[in-house]
Design a binder for these strands. Structure first.
Length: 256
DNA sequence: ATGCCAAACGCTGTTTGA
């Protein structure tokens, strides 16, 4: 069972690239982020024609998350991260597919920091930790996949110095990510590739792709029951070099 | 210290965000 996460950066402008990747990579489950479209204009028909059922939590202009499942409809188990009824951002959706609970996460970027956006990021991470604790306690296979907007360690960025002031590398961001992992989740890419640079994002600006100035911010966290089944994990790096590419690339695991 | 870029929105540029 192949489960992928892909921040598409606008599902309508990315649709040909998304369909192409679905046909090539054939994930059983695809968690999408940054749909940047309202619920009523989600391209359900095109995705169904490509062989995927979907659940989505959209938002006009920015944010928006979805879960796609090959040959079936994901069974939605939640939308919106619990813990703050005032939070109107569409950044979390959860579903069960083939006995695996899957969460699609679009964690706040948090820049500029310090400031209210960074405070929102940290509060969101604490809410995620609380929700993840409940999922973890269920002792079932769970995959929390998405754009975490956290560079976990120095080797996950092209330049520690360039990113020193960025919300993605702040000690508070890293500590919150570690607190989540400390519940017992497995960072699948690092479990499979303990060392080396495996970036998942390259900025559109300043020729970042051409000079391989990327970072690793798209993660798949596995509960023990899912980690026991981990067969492979990887990053579809070449996708970034295509015409009209997202600034993120698909990142995936294979579970036995 | 700033802009580099891209998408959405909606209109020939502005806003938002990464």
């Amino acid at each position: 069972m192949k489960i992928a996460t892909y921040n598409v950066n606008g599902i309508r402008s990315r649709l040909p690239r998304l369909i192409e990747w679905l046909e090539e990579a054939k994930p059983d489950v695809a968690c999408l982020q940054e749909l940047k479209c309202a619920d009523e204009i989600f391209p359900e028909a095109e995705i169904r024609d490509a062989g995927y059922g979907a659940v989505w939590h959209g938002q006009k202009g920015f944010n928006g998350v979805a879960i796609l499942a090959k040959g079936c409809d994901p069974e939605e188990t939640g939308r919106g991260l619990p813990g703050d009824p005032e939070d109107a951002h569409s950044r979390y959706i959860e579903a069960v597919v083939g006995g695996v609970t899957v969460g699609s996460i679009y964690l706040p970027n948090g820049n500029p920091q310090p400031g209210p956006k960074f405070d929102y990021k940290l509060a969101w991470m604490e809410r995620l930790r609380c929700h993840a604790e409940g999922l973890f306690a269920g002792e079932r296979p769970v995959v929390l996949a998405g754009d975490y907007n956290v560079i976990p360690q120095d080797e996950d960025t092209f330049s520690v110095r360039a990113m020193a002031g960025d919300a993605l590398t702040q000690p508070e961001s890293r500590a919150a990510f570690r607190a989540l992992l400390a519940q017992g989740w497995t960072d699948a890419i690092r479990a499979r590739h303990p060392s080396g640079r495996l970036y998942t994002f390259w900025d559109y600006q300043a020729g970042a792709w051409a000079r391989d100035a990327g970072f690793r911010i798209d993660h798949l966290l596995l509960s023990p029951a899912a980690a026991d089944r981990l067969a492979d994990a990887g990053v579809d790096k070449a996708i970034r070099g295509r015409e009209k590419a997202s600034d993120h690339v698909p990142t995936w695991v294979v579970l036995r």
